[in-house]
Every structure is written in C-alpha cells, then in structure tokens.
Design a protein around this nucleic acid. Structure first.
Lengths: 156, 156
DNA sequence: GCCCAATCGGAACGAATCAGTCCGATTTGA
DNA sequence: TCAAATCGGACTGATTCGTTCCGATTGGGC
C-alpha cells in the first residue's frame, strides 16, 4: 500500500504545473528545477503523463508541455494510473487475466471488486487543485516564488 | 497501488480462518491446504499475523492458531498493515522520517495526510466477515466443502 | 536553404524489494 | 525420556523499480 516514487514525483510535478497559468510555457526542465526532481526522471514522467492524455507535449526548440484539462478536472487517481497503470489491488480484479493459482477456490475474490472501487474512489475524490494550493497553516512561500493565485483556480 | 502477493495471501488465509468455528483447531498446514497457498509461505504469514496480534499461536504438537478477535472486529486494513507495515502512500506521511529530497520545497506534502487517511479509511471499512461470507451470486461450494454458516457470522 | 539548439521519446543498467524455500528452536503428548 | 508437530528466523533467486544515458524529432536563427 505504498505509492511508487515515480507516482509520487508525478503528483508533485503535476501540482507544480497546475500552479502556472494555463498558457504558460512549461517544460520538463522547468518542472524539474522547481520541484527538485532529477531531470531525466522528470522527462520520463512527462512522457507517461502525455501518453495518458494528461499533458500535451510539443517537440522542438519551441516545444514544451501544458495540462490538457484544468486542475479541478484532474484527479489523483488519473495521475497514479498514468504512471503505475490501472489501480487494482489484486490481479484477480481484472477479469481478463487469470494468473492467480488460488483463483478456483478463492472465496475472497468476489469481494475484491468492491474493495478496489472504494480505494479508487478515495483517490478519485482528490483533485489536482486541492493539492496544488498551499494550505493556510503552512507558510505559503518557502523558496522565494509566490503562487500566481491566492485561492482556488477559476474553474472549480 | 497494488497489494503485494503476501498481503493478498494473508487476506485469503484470514478469510479461510474466519469460516471456521472460534474454537476449531487451526494450523498453518490446514489453512495452506484449504486455500492452496504454499505451506512455507503460509507459515511466514501466520508469523507476521501473530506478531501483529491478529492471531494467537501455540507451539508444540498440540499447538495451532486462532483469531484473537471476531471476524467483524478485524478489518482489511489490519491485515494489510500486519503484513506490509503501516499504510502510508508516501514516506513523508510519517513525520519522523525525512528521507525525501523534495521535502523542503514540496507543496503537496501537507495534503498527503488527508489522502492517506482516505485510503486507509476505505480499507478499514471492510471487515473480515464481509470477505469470508460467500456472496449469493457465486456458487457457495465449488470444491466440496460447505461453509459452516449460511449467512452472516453471529457477531455483525 | 542550411545549421544549430532545445526538447521529447525509448532503451539499457544498477539497485532494492519481494516471493519462496529451507533449516533450527520450542513445546506438548505418549 | 523420546518423538512428533508446530512456529520462528535466515537465506537465495527472481521480479520490479528507479535512474541514467543516448538517439529521434522539431522549430528558430543565420
């Protein structure tokens, strides 16, 4: 029950991207500098996030990337699934695959779908703008730069 | 976002144990036979479950194991934590540890506690008796043996 | 029209964790 | 006292993860 580091990094990167204006020119390099994530790792993540449809990428010297949707429309589950693949607690959740030796006699399997849905629902309920906005209790600016907006994104 | 195989096996084993009477003599061998889990793996799991306080074990020729609580009082989160350790999506959830390089500038970290709680809550809401009772749609007996009870456990 | 710079994309390597197995320690019953 | 049965910890092989490197592609400048 732990996120992989890549998924963790992806959430941090997406939150950083969400703090910029929609039209701002972003790149894996910029996000890597802001978040402290190693550049090659950040590049790998942008690739996966783009493949999942969360980011739009443009190659070339004038290229870069931007969010395809607003921060409110992107959930934590989206990001995790983009990096780690589908959220499924056990392999038997997927009806196609049959690589569990216990499958025939397993009494627990029928219930796993419900469990899976509950966990996924908890993650889908958290949107990116909830993560990107700094909470009131913590100091808003720690490293010099200030968020472009004080409260929430326009679209909520 | 996937359970390890050991945690998966532990859930299956605990569900099998819950189907027996409270006073029934159980052992890792019996559970391994019923579930199809390899015996050495089942032994490893009983050890961890006992260390977590979910099982009570007795050594010796007349030994064995039994649940310390009723199936309704044991949650999925308890089992998973017994095998995998505490449920924490990211390492920064634990305030003691500081092994995340991004910690200083991380804007997401303050929100991770909430996310963690949501996921853990989803798992804690599922009790063992919910998993051990066979659903109506699936055939109750597939491999010959019939459950000792038709519906739910007495304690619900 | 050509060259250069900047970016994404895929492939390969090293490390860590996990799954499974084996053997020893302990306890009870005959 | 002996023997059987059980739990408990240590070890090995395999899989996956995390990181890094290098090539492919595109746009701007000369």
């Amino acid at each position: 029950m732990r996120l992989t580091s890549l998924a963790d990094y992806a959430v941090v990167m997406m939150a950083a991207a969400a703090r910029h204006d929609a039209g701002a020119r972003l790149s894996a390099t910029v996000l890597a500098e802001e978040t402290g994530i190693p550049l090659p790792t950040a590049q790998k993540l942008t690739g996966r996030l783009a493949a999942a449809g969360l980011l739009e990428t443009a190659r070339g010297s004038g290229g870069g990337l931007c969010l395809t949707r607003t921060a409110a429309e992107i959930s934590l589950a989206d990001i995790i699934e983009a990096v780690e693949g589908p959220i499924q607690m056990t392999s038997c959740v997927d009806a196609e695959r049959h690589d569990c030796a216990l499958e025939q006699a397993c009494q627990v399997r029928p219930h796993m779908g419900v469990v899976n849905g509950a966990v996924r629902g908890a993650l889908a309920a958290v949107s990116l703008d909830q993560l990107s906005c700094a909470p009131a209790q913590a100091g808003a600016q720690k490293d010099g730069w200030t968020p472009a907006f004080a409260g929430e994104q326009v679209a909520s």
